[in-house]
Design a protein around this nucleic acid. Structure first.
Lengths: 312, 312
DNA sequence: CGAAAGCATAGGTCTTTCCTAGGGCGGCGG
DNA sequence: CCGCCGCCCTAGGAAAGACCTATGCTTTCG
């Protein structure tokens, strides 16, 4: 079997014209180099050196092999340094999950943060379809993600909350915004709800469900849409009201629904942003970087956690 | 230490997305592949696969590594097939020693023989300076050569005679060619002698020295030149006579010395052509090829050996 | 919820690698 | 011309690595 070690020994011997000198250079004893060369000759089926009593002389086969051997070792070096480049963020791709409102809040800024620090990297922010991303996380195709979760516990996944965000009621009807919206009023409203968060267990909905359940009601969702923007537009057109994170409301309402406004719920309700990854996994440097940057971004915008704000 | 084996296992695992499938393809047990991957990850300092309970998932580092790993293995294959090309004479260089009159007799034809059979090869026929070639042979820089030798024995070299050739006396003076030249007449002649053969122990000269010694004389060389052609031209111009192999005379006289002719010595004298290589060496296929072709060429032109003609 | 699939670990065998010690041969200086 | 030195080889043993079987753990699927 041909090996890199054999090629290294071969090149050293070729350049020095001597097994002893090659062994010195490589830090081996002379018989070791001799043995490696013999193994290489056997595996190639050709003699590489003529043993001339004193010293060795490369054959024409050795002349032929040399540039190829050099190329092999060079491409090994290239492989090694490519990997080194990835692990030190000089190059390569960093993949991170961030979907729903989290992406809306910090997506572009997060990518800017990464590129400012490591101009050579490619960044993939995965988050088109929330159920797909959740599946990617669970199956290990995605290492970590930032998202809004309903509960802290999840099967096999480690969930680390980093911030929270108030949920507000949005409407194009000023009468609906006159006072904070109670569970009772919420249960009477006609709502359009987007599917923006973790799994079908959308955290906003789950929060609302809990709120209504306390009031003995069930949520009455009139319209279901895929994304937050569509929901906001529908609110702006007056077809329904909705409940979305405050940051999203501040950002989207002026653009998509200028006629609409927002008001708090009563009692106030909050979404939780969290970092999620497989429980028990050792995170890569890239994932740790993304987690750090995403956490910083989110904390700038969203509210601190209840109780002590624990910085990672 | 990074190894080719690890890269092979890595690629198989990457392509199958499974260590078990990779092991099946490579004919190993699953833990072996697992171990190789672990060693590779350790040597690169980066995780290549996320273990996802069932199956493994390549990381972005693995995505980066893959094309480099493929290039490494491809260049190893290239090295192997380059060597295979050399040993099967599809490509590469064949170096062979052939100097003095031997080259004059069979040089171009021999190269033609090789190129007809193996169009891809480069042929080097080494033989500019006889002492240099002898040194190359002795030091192992040259594997084998065809040349004219004085004796069958030589220090450390195996000498295999393959043919012999008569030595003739050439002159521009018809009177000198009237009858076969005896030792007595030779000792009186004014000669130009080229340095064409093995070492300073030129076989033609040594033969003549023996012949003259039998007659109690010493050879009287008037002019020393490097090559046979110059000597023949000088003979053509009438400055001196010479003794050269018959084949050389037949070939060179019409071209270089039209006015000159040749006559046998009395008793007849012969040069011996022989294959020379280091004693005890195993000859490469290339050397064996050259020896076979050169022997055939020489035998077509020169005389068979005394006694039984032993065909190799 | 049990069966199947897939990776990790453990422990043992076999091969490879590497060393030290000593022999042979060629080159070089006295 | 002869002895010394340098360099390669061989031999044999120790250490490391490769590979296997058996087994346990986790995930997936029926």
């Amino acid at each position: 079997m041909l090996s890199l070690h054999q090629l290294t020994c071969f090149l050293a011997a070729y350049e020095h014209g001597s097994f002893t000198a090659a062994a010195d250079e490589l830090g081996y004893a002379q018989p070791s180099v001799s043995e490696q060369i013999r193994a290489l000759e056997k595996s190639l089926g050709a003699q590489l050196f003529r043993r001339a009593g004193r010293g060795v002389v490369p054959t024409t086969v050795a002349d032929t092999l040399r540039p190829y051997a050099e190329r092999v070792l060079a491409s090994v070096d290239a492989a090694r340094s490519a990997v080194a480049g990835v692990t030190s963020f000089e190059s390569g791709t960093i993949r991170f999950g961030m979907f729903g409102i989290a992406r809306l809040y910090a997506g572009a800024g997060l990518i800017a943060d990464v590129l400012d620090r490591y101009p050579g990297v490619r960044v993939e922010l995965v988050g088109q379809n929330s159920t797909e991303v959740a599946e990617d996380l669970r199956r290990g195709r995605l290492e970590a993600a930032m998202l809004a979760v309903p509960t802290i516990e999840s099967e096999g996944l480690a969930v680390t909350p980093v911030a929270r965000e108030e949920l507000v009621y949005i409407s194009a009807d000023p009468a609906h915004l006159a006072a904070p919206v109670t569970a009772h009023r919420l249960s009477l409203a006609s709502l359009v709800m987007p599917e923006t968060s973790y799994r079908t267990e959308d955290s906003t909905r789950q929060t609302l469900r809990r709120m209504l359940h306390g009031a003995g009601r069930n949520p009455s969702t009139r319209i279901e849409v895929e994304d937050l923007e569509t929901a906001v537009e529908l609110v702006g057109l007056g077809y329904a009201d909705s409940v979305i994170p405050r940051g999203a409301a501040e950002q989207l309402l002026p653009r998509l629904a200028p006629s609409a406004g927002f008001v708090s719920l009563r009692p106030r309700q909050f979404d939780t942003f969290a970092i999620v990854h497989r429980a028990g996994a050792v995170l890569s440097p890239a994932a740790r970087l993304m987690i750090e940057l995403a956490t910083r971004r989110i904390r700038e915008i969203a509210l601190p956690l209840e109780g002590s704000a624990h910085l990672s």
